[in-house]
C-alpha cells in the first residue's frame, strides 16, 4: 500500500553549483534524479524531505564521452541513453549488460547512472509501507532501534542492490563527486561502506557528477539472479572482467552486488597458464561463498543466494577465460 507524497518544495537547478548550494542550504534537502526509487520510497514514508533538488535539467551532468583515454559517463545520463551506446556495448559488455538488466525500459527512460550508483539499500523490513513498518516497531535503518534481520547485531544489514556499481567497479571506475569545496575523485569501490543505514561516503551537500573508466576494450560480463525476468532488483549479481596476461594466463576483476550492504570486491589470484583449471575455478567458487554474506533481506533464502552467486561467478569466469583464448 502506498501513501500520498508528503509536502515538499521542488527546486530544479540548472548547474551543479546551484544544486550544491541548494543542498547546503537545508539539511533535509534531498537529491532526486530519475526518482524511480526515491519517489516510491517517499510514498512509503521512508524519507523526511523538505526540499527536493531535482537535477534532470543540469546539462553538464548528461554528457557521455568516450575518447582514446577514458570513458566518462555523466551521472545524469539516463540508463536507456547508456544502453543505446553501441561503443559501450562493444567495448564494455559488463556495463551494457548491467544497464539493460535494470528494472524495465519505462524506468530506464528516466532512471540515471548516478541514481543507480547511489541507490538506497533494500530490505524486507524496510521497503514496506508506513503502517507495515510501524506495526513492526520500524527498523534500525529508519526510525527504529533493532535490525530485524540480525537483532543481535549493531548495524543495518539492508543489501545494496544496484546493478551498475559492480560492473563499473570490476572495470576499476573512478567516481567524481562535487561539493562546496570543489571536485574530488575516488575509486568507485571506496565510495561504499558496509553499513546498510549509511552505505555511501557522500556528504549531504555533495553530488555524484560523473563516473569514468579507462577506455580499454575488455572481455567482461554481468549477470544477476532475480525472481522475475524484468522489473526486479538482483537477489545477487556479479560482474566479471577477464584479461589475458602476457604469459597467456588470465587475470580477473570481480565485483558482486545484492549480497552485502555494499558491493563486494573479490580478490582473485591470477590463473596461470599451467594451473589446473578445475582446481582454480572450484577455489574461486569457495572464495566467493566465503566473501559474500547475504542475509534475510529478501524473501529468497540467503543460502540460495550465496550458492547461486558462486555458481554464476564461476560460470562467467570460465566462459570469459575460454573466450579470451580463442
Amino acid at each position: 500500500m502506498v501513501e500520498i507524497l508528503p509536502n515538499f518544495k521542488l527546486v530544479r537547478p540548472k548547474t551543479v553549483e546551484q544544486a550544491v548550494a541548494m543542498l547546503a542550504r537545508s539539511e533535509s534537502a534531498k537529491l532526486c534524479a530519475g526518482g524511480t526509487d526515491l519517489i516510491v520510497n517517499m510514498r512509503h514514508g521512508l524519507s523526511d524531505v523538505h526540499t527536493l533538488v531535482e537535477i534532470s535539467q543540469i546539462n553538464e551532468m548528461q554528457e557521455l564521452d568516450l575518447d582514446d583515454d577514458r570513458l566518462r559517463i555523466g551521472a545524469g545520463v539516463t540508463l536507456n541513453e547508456l544502453a543505446r551506446s553501441n561503443e559501450i556495448a562493444k567495448s564494455f559488455p559488463a556495463i551494457h549488460q548491467a544497464c539493460v538488466a535494470i528494472a524495465s525500459p519505462n524506468h530506464r527512460n528516466c532512471a540515471t547512472v548516478g541514481g543507480n550508483l547511489c541507490l538506497d539499500t533494500r530490505c524486507l523490513f524496510y521497503n514496506q509501507s508506513h503502517w507495515w513498518r510501524k506495526s513492526n516497531d520500524y527498523c534500525l535503518k529508519y526510525r527504529g532501534t533493532i535490525c530485524h534481520v540480525a537483532p543481535k547485531g549493531n548495524r543495518c544489514r539492508a543489501a545494496f542492490a544496484g546493478d551498475l556499481a559492480p560492473a563499473l567497479i570490476a572495470c576499476r571506475a573512478d567516481i567524481e563527486i562535487t561539493g562546496p569545496q570543489g571536485k574530488r575523485v575516488i575509486a568507485l569501490k571506496d565510495f561504499y561502506r558496509e553499513d546498510g543505514a549509511d552505505h555511501l561516503k557522500l556528504n549531504s551537500d555533495e553530488i555524484v557528477t560523473a563516473v569514468s573508466v579507462k577506455s580499454t576494450a575488455q572481455n567482461s560480463a554481468y549477470k544477476k539472479i532475480t525472481v522475475r525476468g524484468a522489473l526486479d532488483f538482483p537477489l545477487a549479481g556479479v560482474a566479471v572482467v577477464c584479461n589475458q596476461t602476457p604469459d597467456d594466463g588470465r587475470s580477473f576483476s570481480i565485483a558482486i552486488t545484492g549480497t552485502n550492504s555494499s558491493p563486494v570486491v573479490i580478490d582473485v589470484p591470477e590463473l596461470k597458464k599451467d594451473d589446473n583449471r578445475q582446481d582454480f575455478f572450484s577455489a574461486l567458487g569457495n572464495l566467493v561463498k566465503k566473501s559474500v554474506s547475504p542475509q534475510r533481506t529478501t524473501t529468497i533464502a540467503a543460502h540460495y543466494r550465496r550458492l547461486s552467486i558462486a555458481a554464476i561467478t564461476v560460470r562467467l569466469a570460465k566462459t570469459l577465460s575460454d573466450e579470451g583464448s580463442k
Partner: peptide, 15 residues
C-alpha cells in the same frame, strides 16, 4: 513524455 514511455505514478508533474 517527449515520445518516451514513462511511468506517470512515479513521475512528478512539475518535472
Amino acid at each position: 513524455v517527449n515520445g518516451q514511455p514513462r511511468l506517470s505514478c512515479i513521475t512528478l508533474a512539475a518535472t
